[in-house]
């Protein structure tokens, strides 16, 4: 096989590689915190425009919730990244997201186990560090809002604009509560 033949194969291999990755991405159900908001799925209808945002409320002794600017939690970090980080926090302390997905002992599963061994370790390490993260979060909220919070409630605010009637309204739905 000449050098030219190898070069000829490059675009085909390249296209197969990016195509394969695209197909895998389409079919992967990612149970971990990758918050890939489907930007094209929640499209507005002809007569009703819709948009949604998220609100973070902090509670101290479950009284008087205060709206919390989560963007200030990490100085200089992109707000949208901090948003997905907080959304990945578990509802309860003991909840573990590192599921043991070992299947029957097939070659495929063995290969998966070897390839993703590091990832498993990373997720275990991440779970183990949760108490420290919880402390970090409490201290962070205390610095920003000057309050000893005991929980965060994340709400989704849905805005609607009915064009024919010119009605603008909004509704809130509960996404999750992070308690400590």
């Amino acid at each position: 096989m000449s050098r030219k033949d190898i070069m000829r194969m490059l675009p085909i291999l390249f296209f197969l590689l990016i195509g394969f990755e695209f197909l895998v991405m389409l079919n992967f159900s990612e149970p971990y915190p990758a918050v890939i908001l489907p930007p094209f799925k929640e499209t507005s209808f002809k007569d009703t425009l819709q948009a949604s945002s998220f609100k973070f409320l902090i509670y101290a002794d479950t009284k008087n919730p205060i709206e919390f600017d989560y963007g200030k939690l990490i100085d200089g970090a992109p707000k949208s990244t901090v948003f997905s980080m907080l959304l990945s926090l578990p509802n309860e302390k003991k909840y573990s997201q590192a599921k043991d997905d070992k299947g029957p002992k097939t070659i495929r599963n063995k290969l998966k186990e070897t390839v993703f061994n590091n990832r498993k370790k990373a997720l275990e390490k991440s779970d183990a560090s949760y108490p420290r993260t919880e402390r970090w979060l409490r201290e962070g909220i205390n610095d920003i809002a000057n309050i000893e919070a005991d929980s965060i409630v994340i709400l989704k605010i849905q805005f609607r604009f009915i064009r024919s009637e010119e009605i603008f309204d909004s509704s809130a739905s509960h996404i999750k509560t992070i308690k400590w």
Partner: peptide, 22 residues
């Protein structure tokens, strides 16, 4: 470097998982 360890949770196709566990 300001991010606590908990948030490092690489996705399946993320190359970071092959480089480091944290």
């Amino acid at each position: 470097n300001q991010v606590p360890d908990y948030f490092y949770r690489p996705q399946v196709l993320n190359v970071a998982q092959f480089l480091s566990t944290g």
